[in-house]
Amino acid sequence: MVMILSEEQQLLKDSAKLLLSENAPISALRAMRDSGEDHMPELWSKMSEAGWPGIVIPDAYSGLEFGYVGAGVVLEEMGRTLALSPFLSSAVVAASLINQLGSEQQKEKYLPGIASGELTAVLAADETGFFDLDDISTSATSTDNGYTLSGNKRGVIDGHNADLLLVVTNGEEGMSVFAIEKDTAGVSCETRLIVDSQRAADISLEAVAVTKEALLGSLGDASSALEFTIDVAAACSAAEMLGISIETFERTVGYLKEREQFGNKIGTFQGLQHRAAQLFAEIEVSKSAVLAALQALDENSEKRSVLASMAKAKCAKVVRNATEEGVQMHGGIGMTDEFDIGFFMKRAAVCRQAYGDYHFHANRFAELRGY
């Protein structure tokens, strides 16, 4: 495993940096928040024109088949600008689950639309607020024409704007996934504003009738595909947190070089230098952890799950440290809304919880390693 980006991956990273810096600076997030909006449709159009929604989707379904390292470098750059889009939730997580679990007909039905950005799909799995897939009570009851689903899902990021819900159910047969259009009778969605100015959806399913074609794969046979999807979500959300950490660190170091106190640049204070050096070292470790996890996904390595949970757990700790240090080293101005550094702390808080927090993935890592 070569721990560097290929030439093509580096070119994608550079083009992502350029597109996002021009179309999604922090000022765009601030303007979106202040206007009362909850997403950036123009940015998603730009990303779709660039082909990004098809990065992990196979060529057979109109995707780019560029792999998870490709998705990771895009997400790292998105973390640096705090760009809001359904890229992770739809083009990476949901697309991966459909590709793993769906029939040929289902892949042909959904994946080309996701790859073009015209269709957005989200995973509706968690019911606890802590991404605990061992505690799913949403049920699917067989009927003459298909199935009836009942249950509730909490905190579905991008769920309020999604066209398609990938609903996870549990029963005696095991875990299953159903692809349900959001406007299906019996599906209701309540949105709530979360700390980073996004909205999350609490979704209720009350006797939702679906045909047999809505079931992805076979009834009770989704566990393996869901494990792969957790790996994808963990590694790719870690990549986004890595971008947040890097950008926060660079902004903080820049401030330390400019701010004067007692006639000296505060960057000359040894205590702050030590804290910055420690954070730099932790970010460098995170870079290696994220790239190893993304490469393991592309290679479908047997170490895939271990590396994915390691990357998520590591980046969850580092991004918290990076954003908290960023605010503290900026001093009083770091606590004000007028200064951008606080936006990174808020997004970091959401990313740390998404698809399993530090405790979820640290425990998963320990179990996979036989502890």
Results as ranks from 00 to 15, higher is better:
L193Y: 06
A225I: 01
G220E: 08
S188G: 07
A214F: 00
S188F: 03
I230N: 13
D231S: 13
S218T: 06
G217C: 00
A179F: 07
A235H: 13
A209F: 02
D202A: 08
D183P: 10
D183G: 08
S197H: 13
T211W: 00
G217M: 00
G217W: 00
D202C: 12
T211Y: 01
L216Y: 06
G220Y: 10
A225C: 04
S197T: 13
A234Y: 09
S188A: 09
A200Q: 10
E227A: 06
D196N: 14
L219W: 03
V177K: 13
E213V: 04
V232P: 12
S204T: 09
S188T: 15
A200R: 04
L216G: 05
D221A: 01
A207G: 14
L215R: 02
A225R: 03
E181A: 04
I203L: 14
S224G: 02
A233G: 13
A179E: 07
R199M: 08
A234G: 14
G220T: 04
D202W: 05
E213G: 11
K182S: 15
K182L: 12
E227K: 04
S223Q: 05
T184Y: 14
V177T: 10
A234T: 12
A179V: 05
A179D: 11
T191R: 07
A207K: 15
A201N: 06
R192S: 15
A214C: 09
A209W: 00
E206Y: 00
A200Y: 06
S224V: 01
T229M: 02
A234V: 07
L205I: 10
V210W: 06
Q198M: 12
L205S: 04
C189R: 09
K212I: 02
C236W: 07
I203S: 03
A179K: 11
L215M: 04
A179N: 11
A214T: 03
T229G: 08
A233K: 05
C189V: 15
V187F: 04
L193Q: 11
E181K: 13
V177L: 12
V210K: 04
V232L: 01
I180M: 11
E190C: 10
D202E: 11
L193E: 11
G220S: 09
V232R: 04
C236N: 14
D183V: 13
S237T: 15
G217Q: 01
D202M: 10
V210Y: 05
C189K: 08
V210E: 05
C189H: 06
V187H: 09
T211R: 05
S218E: 15
I194H: 13
L216W: 06
A185I: 14
V208P: 07
T229H: 08
L226H: 02
E206F: 01
T184F: 11
F228M: 03
E181L: 02
V187L: 04
V177W: 12
I230D: 10
L226C: 00
A179Q: 09
E190M: 12
A235S: 15
A201R: 03
